[in-house]
Design a binder for these strands. Structure first.
Length: 958
DNA sequence: ACACTCACG
DNA sequence: GACGTACGTGAGTGTA
């Protein structure tokens, strides 16, 4: 049997006795992990639904959660390159501690633990021991004190300590050898994070906590002083004693009085929060050496009935002995290839000679990572504050161009930093040849943004690569975000300075141009440095993993295309929207009055909770349907049902909701979104949001402008063209079903598309054996719903819901469908097999879509993965097709001598703006490019068909 | 911060 | 046969 908990390095077991003789020269000999047991228990208890043991009904939810968390932690720790040599779980022993003697009300407000949890405390200790992990506890002391004592001891002996907890009270212990690990958020807490939280370094945390107190533990502190004030005071005066001694000097009267009057209470609070390193150690450190679980673990899990975990542990043990697979090797975080990142090593460039020197270095290197700093988020309006460059790992600079002092409201005698900078035009003029030089490769993180900003300064950056897109191509679906901070933490094991730390947060956030140059240099140059390092790390994997083609053809060209679309924006008529908004307001008020009358009392129509109370409790209507959390659902389909039964209030609510949605989400916000600079609306397209490769649009989202209802279409009519111009909408007809026909190789579908038949009618005809001529509309509607359902990974439940038919009937439809189209069944089976084996699927263009849920614990999760695996190759191929069209479009329009511009993409639709006279030719070019977009990569066995129309507004162009 | 609802493909 | 249920998004509001 392989040792699960074996340390990563295979060095012989080390005892603490060796430490004093051989302190730290060869790296830490002891790395002790201290797990905050109480924290784990409460998290496990609250995160999980109540669970009882089958045999006797004993509550074991928290035990189960605790075991899973502990196991995961053990596995993760072992895999990390900071594997523990020693390990223990620390528990609170008793309520009565020395702090209660100091202050009777300490933790007085804390409610007793839930009844269900109490019997689980001893079980959790038993579980810990079963895992081969020692439990530490001591009468009269809290877990925190024991953690402190062990941490101090190991630290003083030259070892390392990792405290697994998110409790802020433990942050005072953090230091060069002591860190914390928050396993929920999966973040490491070092001195930097402590400063972020408390505004002071770890050694001052106690002083800050003494001042601000803690309502949870009922530590009094000083009334009216919060964390902000506390850290400011401590930073100024150094510590509590000095502060209290000099309290009389404080200018603010109230604060001065508080400090003087509550001096004793503050000193007491300090004693309450200070952790005692002199707490006796119940066990010698040597006895905490990591050991593998014995046979009692299996027995314990069996006894509890934790079958899944038991199986996982057995699997891990049998698998761990085998040599690492190549994939596992490729995924293992590689060691950073360069030295550590030192933010103080960067240069601030403020004269032309230095700038030219950096530009020369970039040319010699042939590669430069860069990043723009601006004063706003929208690339269409943001002003440049500076540019950073990195020419090699660790060699980076920041060139400020727009930094200013914050406008001073009064007299300020502090010496102001000199803000002499190279004039912006000068910097732009010198950077332009470099950034446009075809022989120098540029690298950026989210290049689209920087390209859009610089384009407004006359620079067309190229050639360029994008680390965010490289990450997305490699690992799309594996992570929520491909932002730089995450990538840096993941691959470089380095946490970059957060924007919040330099610019502040909330309404006190300052524009980047007001950030001091020294700080701005650290932050900005670090971004370029990190980007370059990420590029060097990630880029080789593209070829290695067969993803270079996807990256080069459908990812890398996109930032330029999208930057131009975003900068172009779309014209929206604010007058029309204002009229609509007023109209909606009036009608909403009428509906509200009516709803209140029908309900017999006033209520908030926007509150699902109140609606539920009125409809179900007061009016006694039946609902049945519940939301995910068990609350009564009041969604549209349910209200529709009730309205159909003849009730008036649901109808009124539906009407109000529609208007409320339209007004709140569209009319009012679209007016605000109009840029004062351009008079147009500039969305932001995200390339790395949807795992299938679809784009996403935000700020504002222009991919969900209403179209399905008449009222909604009025909003679409406010999207217009410049005078003398038209909007052109070109959309793929049935692209997903066509791609399914090709991918799944379905003869009937292919034939129907080749002959240009009505695909839904054809489906209905095949399924129900009725001729297309004279087919009832309802029959076709059902077939249409089935076709959509197929693309989504159909289920009887989903279809019955969609069509409001009994599940048995839906089931029968699906059965018939699979009989008529057996190819679809086999496509679905193939995707399910693939995703269960590999946890990813690919599109015909080679895009890889990771679906980690396929490895999920629950059946439900895996079923979800199956459906996603059926959908992703279809949705993803459609996304690839339209990307290919978009990439070719600007060139095709230009080649045809047209001025038309592409403005928007809505998944299967492209929107253009063109001079009226060009309309017909633009339609011709757009159709051709779009219909041939799959070529030459893929020769589709079905035709792609595009319908296009020109009109004065977006609605009429459909 | 999260749940709910709803706009789109 | 059990399991929760159609796939992919972004945004506003209410509620804790």
């Amino acid at each position: 049997m392989t040792d699960i908990l074996d340390a990563a390095d295979a060095s012989a077991p080390v005892t603490l006795d060796e430490i004093p003789r051989e302190p730290t020269q060869d790296g830490p000999k002891v790395r002790l992990y201290l797990i905050d047991g109480s924290g784990f228990i409460f998290r496990a208890f609250h995160a999980l639904p109540p669970l009882t043991r089958k045999s006797d009904g004993l509550p074991i939810g928290a035990v189960s959660g605790f075991c899973n968390m502990l196991w995961k932690l053990l596995v993760d720790m072992k895999a990390s390159d900071e594997a523990p040599t020693h390990l223990a779980v620390v528990f609170d022993k008793s309520e009565q501690t020395f702090r209660k003697d100091l202050y009777a009300d300490y933790k007085a407000h804390r409610p007793p633990p839930p009844e269900d949890l109490v019997p689980q405390f001893p079980l959790v200790r038993e579980a810990t021991r079963a895992f081969g992990v020692p439990c530490l506890e001591l009468s009269g002391y809290e877990a925190d004190d024991l953690i402190a004592a062990y941490a101090c001891k190991v630290r003083d002996l030259g070892g390392e300590v990792v405290i697994v907890s998110s409790d802020k009270d433990l942050m005072q212990l953090v230091g060069p050898q002591v860190s914390m690990l928050d396993t929920m958020k999966n973040v490491k807490i070092g001195p930097e994070q402590v400063v972020e939280k408390f505004g002071v370094p770890p050694e001052k945390v106690v002083d800050v906590q003494a001042l601000c107190g803690d309502s949870v533990d009922n530590v009094p502190g000083a009334p009216g002083i919060g964390i902000k004030t506390a850290s400011a005071l401590i930073l100024e005066y150094g510590d509590i004693d000095t502060l209290l001694a000099r309290a009389g000097e404080i200018k603010q009267q109230k604060r001065r009085e508080t400090l003087i009057n509550f001096a004793d209470q503050i000193r007491l609070s300090r004693e309450l929060v200070r952790l005692d390193c002199d707490t006796p150690l119940p066990e010698p450190i040597d006895s905490l050496a990591v050991q593998e679980p014995g046979p009692e673990l299996a027995a314990f899990l069996e006894d509890m009935g934790f079958r899944t975990l038991a199986r996982r542990i057995t699997d891990a043990k049998s698998g761990a002995g085998a040599p690492a697979t190549p994939t596992a090797e490729a995924k293992a975080p590689a060691r950073p290839q360069h030295g550590a990142i030192d933010v103080n090593a960067y240069q601030c460039v403020r004269d032309v000679e230095t700038l030219d020197a950096w530009i020369a270095r970039a040319r010699t290197a042939g590669i430069v990572a860069f990043d723009t700093e601006t004063d706003a988020l929208s690339s269409a309006s943001a002003e440049l504050c500076g540019v950073s460059l990195a020419v090699a790992p660790g060699e980076a600079c920041y060139i400020p161009v727009g930094h200013q002092h914050e406008s001073d409201g009064g007299l300020d005698f502090e010496a102001k930093e000199h803000l002499e900078q190279i004039p912006c035009e000068e910097v732009i003029a010198r950077l332009k040849p470099l950034l446009e030089d075809p022989s120098v490769l540029k690298v950026a993180q989210n290049a689209k943004y920087d390209m859009a900003v610089l384009s407004r300064y006359g620079i067309e950056v190229g050639p360029i690569e994008d680390t965010m897109l490289i990450s997305f191509v490699l690992e799309g679906g594996l992570h929520k975000s491909h932002g730089m901070d995450e990538l840096s933490k993941r691959w470089l094991e380095h946490e970059p300075i957060s924007f919040k730390t330099v610019a502040g947060t909330g309404k006190g956030q300052k524009s980047f141009k007001h950030v001091a140059l020294s700080e701005a240099t650290c932050y900005a140059a670090e971004d370029s440095d990190v980007t370059l390092r990420l590029y060097e790390h990630l880029r080789p994997r593209l070829a290695h993993e067969g993803l270079l083609g996807v990256y080069e053809t459908v990812e890398r060209p996109m930032p330029k295309v999208l930057a131009d679309m975003e900068l172009a924006g779309v014209k929206v008529d604010p007058e029309q929207l204002r009229i609509l908004s007023n109209d909606f307001s009036v009608r909403m008020a009428e509906l509200e009055t009516k709803a209140h009358e029908l309900a017999g009392r006033p209520f908030n129509l926007g509150s699902p909770k109140q609606i539920g109370e009125i409809l179900f409790a007061e009016m006694g209507l039946s609902s049945g349907k519940k939301t995910a959390t068990g609350a009564m659902s009041t969604d549209a389909s349910l209200l529709e049902d009730l309205a159909a039964q003849g009730h008036e209030l649901p109808r009124t609510l539906l009407d109000w909701r529609q208007l409320s949605k339209l007004k709140g989400t569209y009319t009012d916000n679209l007016i605000e979104a109009i840029s004062p600079k351009t008079g147009r609306v500039h969305t932001s397209f995200s390339l790395a949001a949807a795992t299938t490769g679809r784009l996403a649009s935000s700020d504002p989202n222009l991919q969900n402008i209403p179209i399905r209802t008449e009222e909604g279409r009025k909003i679409r009519r406010a999207f217009i063209a410049e005078p003398g111009h038209v909007l052109i909408s070109a959309d793929y007809s049935q692209i997903e079903l066509r791609l399914l026909a090709h991918i799944g190789d379905i003869p009937q579908l292919k034939r129907a598309f080749a002959e240009g038949l009505d695909i839904h009618a054809m489906t209905a005809s095949e399924m129900f054996g009725v001729p297309v001529e004279g087919m009832p509309a309802e029959t076709r509607r059902r077939a249409k719903a089935i076709n959509f359902g197929i693309v989504y990974g159909i289920s009887a439940f989903g279809l019955s819901n969609q069509l409001s038919i009994p599940r048995e009937e839906a089931s029968a439809y699906i059965k018939t469908y699979f009989e008529r189209f057996p190819g679809i069944r086999s496509y679905m089976d193939r995707m399910q097999q693939q995703v269960r084996a590999e946890a990813f699927v690919t599109t015909i263009f080679g895009r890889k879509v990771h679906i980690p849920a396929a490895r999920g614990k629950s059946q439900a999760e895996r079923s979800f993965a199956d459906r996603a695996a059926i959908n992703a190759p279809i949705q993803g191929a459609a996304a690839d097709v339209i990307r290919r069209a978009m990439i070719r479009m600007p060139g095709a329009l230009e080649k045809a001598g047209l001025q038309a511009r592409m403005l928007l993409q809505v998944h299967d639709e492209l929107v253009f703006e063109a001079p009226e006279a060009e309309a017909d030719r633009v339609i011709e070019v757009a159709k051709q490019v779009m219909e041939r977009a799959a070529e030459p990569a893929i020769s589709l066995s079905v035709p792609l068909v595009v319908e296009a129309r020109a009109a004065a507004n977006w609605d009429d162009a459909h």
